[in-house]
């Protein structure tokens, strides 16, 4: 499994760096839009991205193998489908945590530059750990609920998740 994880991290290093760069820049953009005030929109959108990311990343990892027909090569290795899927999930988690760290660091940096937080704002570190906890919980739920075979497709699950998440986050009210 370790060899597969190393292979995936090496193979997808560049896309990961791009994604991290976008994630790092994202709070800056939102801060500019919100004129320096931290808002639920910033937190909600970051939450949305961080929760959706593991599903998207795992889907993308498996889809890349399918597209290049190397999934068959992996299936032929003396490794069960559960180990294969587990390795992909771990890679997604590693990528996600890397992205999450960058995202949180960037958001905190932006907030610090803009002059700190309002008195009644939640502790950003606590919020960040809540985000990461929710992501890990989501991953554990996915791993235990889904039996992954060679023709894995997260697509329908992904879009249902996006649709339901969008309904939840779009209904949030802005602070007074």
């Amino acid at each position: 499994m370790l060899a597969l994880i190393r292979k995936d991290l090496r193979e997808h290093a560049l896309p990961l760096l791009y994604y991290m760069a976008v994630t790092a820049a994202f709070p800056v953009v939102l801060a500019l839009i919100d004129r320096g005030r931290p808002s639920p929109a910033l937190l909600s959108t970051s939450f949305f991205m961080v929760v959706i990311s593991p599903i998207m990343i795992t889907h993308w990892l498996l889809n890349t193998e399918k597209t290049k027909r190397t999934l068959f090569l992996l299936r032929m290795l003396p490794m069960s489908v559960h180990h294969l899927a587990g390795a992909k999930e771990l890679v997604a988690l590693i990528m996600l945590i890397s992205i999450g760290v960058v995202s949180v660091t960037s958001a905190l940096t932006v907030l610090h530059i803009l002059g700190g937080l309002e008195a009644n704002s939640p502790n950003p570190v606590a919020v960040a750990w809540v985000f990461i906890g929710v992501v890990l919980f989501t991953e554990l739920m996915l791993l235990s609920l889904f039996k992954i075979r060679s023709a894995v497709s997260y697509s329908s699950t992904l879009w249902r998740f996006i649709a339901s998440s969008s309904r939840v986050f779009c209904s949030q009210e802005s602070p007074p």
Partner: peptide
């Protein structure tokens, strides 16, 4: 079905010869 360890003694060359081009 599902057991995989025995494939440590099996060599397989598929028709499509999937390899990692990169």
């Amino acid at each position: 079905y599902g057991s995989a360890v025995w494939r440590q003694s099996v060599g397989y060359v598929a028709e499509s010869h999937p390899l990692y081009d990169w």
